[in-house]
Write a protein that binds this DNA or RNA. Sequence first.
DNA 1: CCAAAAGTGTTACACCTACACCCATGT
DNA 2: ACATGGGTGTAGGTGTAACACTTTTGG
Lengths: 257, 257
Amino acid sequence: MPVEPVPTHDARLAVSTVIFALRRDEASGLPSLWIPLVRRTRDPYLDDWALPGGWLPDDEELSDAAARTLGETTGLAPKYLEQLYTFGALGRSPGGRVVSVVYWALVQSDEAERATTDENVRWCAADALGRLAFDHNRIVEYALWRLRTKMEYARIAHAFLGDTFTLAQLREVHEAVLQRRLDPANFRRTMEASGTLVDTGERLSGTPHRPPKLYRYDASIDLADAGPLARTRALGNGAHPDRGETDPILPHPRMRA
Amino acid sequence: MPVEPVPTHDARLAVSTVIFALRRDEASGLPSLWIPLVRRTRDPYLDDWALPGGWLPDDEELSDAAARTLGETTGLAPKYLEQLYTFGALGRSPGGRVVSVVYWALVQSDEAERATTDENVRWCAADALGRLAFDHNRIVEYALWRLRTKMEYARIAHAFLGDTFTLAQLREVHEAVLQRRLDPANFRRTMEASGTLVDTGERLSGTPHRPPKLYRYDASIDLADAGPLARTRALGNGAHPDRGETDPILPHPRMRA
DNA sequence: CCAAAAGTGTTACACCTACACCCATGT
DNA sequence: ACATGGGTGTAGGTGTAACACTTTTGG
């Protein structure tokens, strides 16, 4: 057995969060993904932009730390929060090793429109950030990939919306994240088949055409596929890690005997 | 901006690994999943069984630490290694906070047959471990779920086998992990369609029936779906994190416009 | 009435499943 | 020769993609 001495000078532990919201482009009218960044106020990468985060307090849960820094920078509460990955490469932070447990979060987009924006917080289009501090470009790239991948098999799109929404709004979210148009008819059937949509009986009026039904999201269905860690924290809607790699990954059966 | 003081008393950082091998049951002849455990030699949970791991050295990469403890307990090198999740709940370790970055690994099964087994290392059937130290039962449960989920969409089964293998051997791996029989004919076509199998031209002789072809795994195909972190470390075959929670996740297109 | 989006129906096609059947080798 | 697993062929079911079509509102 190897000896197991208590370390005298551990790597430092940080928590960061990639926060996604949907923002409507003024010109095209189409929504796209935006994330908030904070300006560095001290030496490594001073004045550069970085992901919200900070050192992990001794007495705070990892996900709580992620949600707290999210609130401190945006003034919002996450509607979806999930651990992304832990980055701990030796060279990633000049001047002392830092291991960062990174979360990703979705926030309600209409709330995000009127979110905090001061000198040191800036919202950027997720696919056109500048050069970020540390390895944060890589982290955002991975978070984007996870969001897009997971959107194809999990029901998380509603986290960008309010309590009730129309199918067109839900489809618009999918289209913005996946960056391609979806067939309204097939999208409707796919969502209805998932069993997670509840017809509220209400309709949205004031549109210049036939008023669409308003739906509500039903969380009780999804949990089966979310894996053994899903039951952990409730968090309003769904807060589960991955399928992995989710991968996922749970669509079809397979060739059986 | 919140203050950002350097912490005086961080949580301690550990790395653990869930190591999977396939072991053939003497009675039934069918292979099933086994994992090595180490006996605790100090106070929290003294003499209980736990996952291999240890404190993260200041100058070692996370994945290297996982691979090293794997080697120290089994004498083997991983054929597949991927970060699983980071566990950092406040109460998970009595007497001081510990944040564990957990990896999962696959090792070649015939090598594992003759692996280290002393007083303090024991191999157990993955679905019939006793009560483990800390939250390690939960961790193994999650790792098992990830392995089974990922086996359905990613090509990782070959990591349990040698350099060359027959389709029947590969199918046996899938059957053992997924715990159900697969149709040999359909399994063959699915694997051939994946494009990751290379016919070596050789055949396995000595069987009491028609000699099956020997195949080799071709890594160059898979990397497309593995996500932005895949290019990181080469590690013989594939070492990529997730699709996440992958998950996944990448089988089908979707309703297009 | 017209435009436009909501919502329904239908067909073509891809893929998975199940199972029948032939092939090649050791005993 | 024959038993056994290797390997190929093929019909039926399931689900998605594409698109035509009807419905319902505001202007």
